[in-house]
């Protein structure tokens, strides 16, 4: 086991003081260099947990530690790639200046900044586009700029909130491969939120499966025992994916027994999960 990078202890979150909990009793441990996925249905609180780890939100109870230190707010040690690049990028800066932003905040001089920025831009495959402005780029390219911008600031952890959710399938697959390549090259710890099961099993080493909110919890943590690069057509991976899907379905119904599809269906699910895993 490697060094523990991110740890939460008995974490709770509710938005109103006496309201129901969005997140309940969250205990996770993410190892250094791990590619970790938060998987869950929409509105299950996985983005809330991500925002807590990023420091944008404070937990209502419990602790969140990064490198053993409690998180008090956002910081350059945790780079964030947001879901919507149009919201997250600075449209008045060109690609290079966007990527340089974090380095500028660190007080690096112009020359150093440009060197690091160009290296990150090169790494995400945007070489030659550094003088363009975000509004001249496609959706996929904008996400590449976001990734380059986070990488350039050299964070310990890369936090990604459904970054490929709005892209067409082909662009999305290309960026997933790119991300795996970057992750293996840089060895960064990556925390990746998605509701897409095949994306989760294609990318992640470990998958935390969320139950639905209120009182959303991590129902299960699954290890993905496949080496990279993965082939989604690989029958073993297909079986595994199906297993994750059932686990997710079970997790979604965990807090809402009324929505169960009946005992027969559940029984069947359990059986096949045993076969699959």
């Amino acid at each position: 086991m490697g060094k523990c990078k991110i740890e939460t202890r008995d974490l709770y979150k509710s938005y109103a003081k006496c309201g129901e909990n969005i997140l309940s009793n969250i205990n996770i441990r993410i190892t250094e260099g791990e590619f970790h996925i938060f998987l869950g249905a929409s509105g299950c609180g996985k983005t809330t947990l991500l925002n807590i780890i990023a420091g944008f939100l404070k937990p209502s109870a419990g602790e969140i530690l990064v490198d053993g230190d409690p998180v008090t707010g956002p910081g350059a040690d945790r780079g964030v790639v947001f879901q919507n690049a149009d919201q997250a990028l600075f449209p008045w800066l060109n690609v290079q200046r966007n990527v340089e932003y974090g380095l500028r905040m660190q007080g690096q001089n112009r020359k150093e900044r440009a060197k690091t920025a160009l290296r990150s831009i090169e790494m995400v495959g945007l070489g030659g586009h550094e003088k363009k402005c975000p509004d001249e780029l496609s959706g996929g390219m904008k996400q590449r700029v976001q990734i380059a911008r986070s990488l350039a600031a050299d964070p310990n952890v890369l936090i990604m909130d459904e970054p490929f959710g709005a892209l067409d399938p082909e662009t999305r697959r290309g960026l997933q491969d790119e991300l795996i390549r970057i992750w293996r090259k840089t060895g960064k710890t990556i925390l990746f939120v998605t509701h897409d099961i095949s994306e989760a099993v294609y990318l992640g080493q470990k998958i935390s499966i969320f139950s639905s909110s209120p009182d959303s919890q991590i129902a299960e943590e699954v290890e993905v025992p496949f080496s990279y690069p993965r082939d989604l057509e690989d029958p073993d991976l297909v079986d595994f994916t199906r297993g994750v899907q059932w686990k997710l379905e079970r997790a979604v119904h965990l807090n809402h027994p009324a929505q169960h599809r009946g005992p027969v269906a559940e029984h069947k699910h359990d059986k096949i999960i045993d076969m699959a895993v």
Partner: peptide
Amino acid sequence: IDPVKYQASESLGANRFWSFITVTIPASV
């Protein structure tokens, strides 16, 4: 101004003063 812009700048290491200079001013143009 979209709050995500501030989140982006703060998670890239900007403090309140710099996020005012580099986000508030240009984004309110």
